[in-house]
């Protein structure tokens, strides 16, 4: 088991955002978190990159207790986070944004840079442009490329398809599949539940800060509860 979260509680002041969630991720999987807005999906990712330490509970990554590890130490551990809304550094060039992804690495990372430009040819073209001047899709690719520059073993993706045209969403999801195939484990939070479930191995469904059920992605795709609520399809007979 690569990552294990045990009964984690996260509070924002007086508000409890996560009421003790337990789940795990295995090496080489794509796991997706589904749920309505405010269910606690983003909070879960933020907890897994140190932006919000759990009040109680435990997080174990590759056998190491990382419950109280600080945000800036996560990249070095092998966990990279592509935040919601992409959060590109707007006044840095594409190249500088990629370099920021490799901030904690010492030595040369030009091979990885070349690999990013191979995976995302558009980023190579826009190398010297400011991140803030890219389109939404280009920014998403840059955000993913930036995270990969830290050579993570676990990649956290928060709403990678948000606000993007369907064709770009296809590309992003294809790339997420390729990332997994190249050996990086992926945890993805996605509004686009159907697409996420087609790509993922397993899924967890969250409601009001709790995980309410989980299953193989292929089963969830055909689960009535999921279809009704998250895939926007009416269940037969209702």
């Amino acid at each position: 088991m690569m990552l294990q979260v045990n009964d984690a509680v996260v509070r924002y002041g007086a508000i409890t955002a996560l009421h003790g969630i337990t789940f795990e991720i295995n090496q080489g999987e794509i796991v997706t978190l589904l749920g309505a807005n405010g269910a606690g999906k983003s909070t879960t990712l933020r907890m897994l990159s140190g932006l919000h330490a759990p009040a109680t509970g435990k997080i174990i990554f590759e056998g190491q207790d990382i419950t109280n590890t600080k945000a800036h130490q996560f990249v070095a551990l092998g966990i990279a986070h592509v935040p919601e809304g992409r959060r590109i550094f707007p006044q840095m060039t594409v190249e500088e944004n990629l370099e920021m992804g490799a901030f904690t690495r010492s030595g040369s990372f030009s091979d990885d840079m070349d690999r990013m430009y191979e995976t995302f040819p558009i980023l190579k073209e826009r190398r010297k442009q400011l991140g803030g001047n890219l389109s939404g899709g280009e920014q998403q690719m840059l955000a993913i490329g930036r995270a990969l520059m830290g050579s993570p073993r676990l990649l956290l993706l928060d709403e990678p398809s948000m606000g993007l045209a369907p064709m770009i969403v296809e590309t992003i999801f294809r790339i997420i599949g390729e990332i997994r195939d190249s050996g990086t484990t992926v945890l993805v939070v996605e509004q686009n539940a159907a697409q996420a479930l087609r790509l993922a191995d397993r899924g967890y469904v969250m409601e009001n800060g709790r995980i309410v059920f989980s299953d193989k992605a292929s089963n969830l795709l055909h689960d009535e509860r999921v279809r009704a609520v998250y895939l926007g399809e009416s269940v037969e007979g209702t």
Binding site: S49, G50, L51, K70, A71, H72, Q73, F74, V75, A76, A80, H81, P83, R87, F89, P90, Q91, M92, M100, G101, F103, T104, R146, G150
Partner: peptide, 16 residues
């Protein structure tokens, strides 16, 4: 510059 532009994201990149 990273902290000036977006401190939280800078910390995700490993910036203290």
């Amino acid at each position: 510059r990273a902290v000036a532009q977006d401190a939280e994201t800078a910390s995700l990149m490993g910036v203290n």
